[in-house]
């Protein structure tokens, strides 16, 4: 599903350049649950952003479902964000001015899904995540764990084929983290969603079927 060939990423620093990712080769198959680990600053987030089409690699080739990403135009990328890729963030990044319900509904608005279907899909997700009672609350009225649940609900409501999660449990204590991880496992196994997560926790990493270690911009 995802294929990286000789991917490098560097940022200009002064007169030289700072190479963050060096010649990465990586293949991720449909339905996999992959955990990426590595020390702080090793380039995990950068890798995830490249996978999520938010950043361009400096060199190398990236195939998403067999299609070369660098040849895609803005429109095509937006289409992938709308339908194929879901993001979960460490800091949740819910929109403060929207209720739980509206936050979850937003991706569907961008997909131009008709109102009735939107309603039923949001209702389904609320139900499944057990947050029906919270649907009219605003993010600042929720605990961190609850916010992340909403973040995941928002990521999956548009039924993406892959979820990219950057330290989704980084701000949560272990009980809440466990709940999130169980949820990921369920999404992966029952809904066949490919999941790529970055995590610092050995325990959480074991939820994945494969662990990729990054060190100094290389896969170890």
């Amino acid at each position: 599903m995802i294929q990286l060939k000789h991917i490098s990423k560097y940022y200009p620093v002064g007169f030289g350049k700072n190479e963050i990712l060096k010649d990465i080769d990586l293949t991720i198959f449909e339905g996999e649950f992959v955990s990426i680990m590595g020390p702080s600053g090793s380039g995990k987030s950068t890798l995830l952003h490249i996978l999520g089409l938010l950043e361009e690699p400096s060199q190398g080739e990236y195939l998403f479902e067999g299609e070369p990403v660098h040849k895609m135009n803005e429109k095509k990328r937006t289409q992938l964000h709308r339908g194929s890729i879901g993001f979960v963030f460490q800091a949740y990044h819910l929109i403060d001015e929207l209720t739980v319900y509206e936050n979850i509904e937003t991706p569907l608005l961008y997909k131009n899904i008709p109102s009735a279907e939107r309603k039923s899909r949001v209702a389904d997700v609320l139900d499944r995540f057990n947050i029906v009672a919270k649907k009219d609350l605003f993010p600042n009225q929720l605990s961190g764990g609850q916010q992340q649940l909403v973040g995941i609900a928002r990521a999956i409501v548009a039924e993406p084929r892959v979820i990219l999660a950057d330290e989704p449990t980084g701000n949560l204590h272990s009980d809440q983290a466990k709940e999130i991880m169980e949820l990921f496992r369920q999404l992966n196994q029952r809904d066949k969603i490919t999941i790529i997560q970055v995590t610092h926790s050995e325990l959480n990493a074991t939820y994945g079927q494969r662990i990729i270690q990054i060190r100094d911009g290389k896969i170890a």
Partner: peptide, 16 residues
């Protein structure tokens, strides 16, 4: 800014 970032990630075009 966060809102803009999140919306773009969810598939908003710049035009929108």
């Amino acid at each position: 800014a966060i809102e803009v970032g999140v919306r773009k990630v969810m598939g908003s075009e710049r035009r929108q």
